[in-house]
């Protein structure tokens, strides 16, 4: 379970910011005053630190940090 979560947290930033780009490359809908592509990139500026934090916590709980 923990391992699966780790894999998800590690791959999410890459998938969101590289792999799915062709699908989010659009103007509509405009969210918070940002066209969709820009909104999406903005969203992942904020979400990526949470992924890192999650990985950090997981590693800490496993004691694999020193």
């Amino acid at each position: 379970m923990k391992k699966l979560l780790l894999i998800v947290l590690i791959s999410a930033p890459f998938i969101a910011q590289l792999v799915v780009l062709p699908f989010v490359n659009r103007i509509d809908p405009i969210i918070f005053g940002l066209p969709f592509l820009q909104f999406w990139l903005f969203l992942w500026i904020v979400l990526t630190p949470f992924c890192t934090l999650g990985i950090y916590q997981l590693q800490k709980s496993e004691g694999s940090l020193d």
Partner: peptide, 16 residues
Amino acid sequence: AFFAIPYSVLAYFISY
């Protein structure tokens, strides 16, 4: 020009 965004966000992520 926005390529700079995923670029630097991922750079820090990978650096971890």
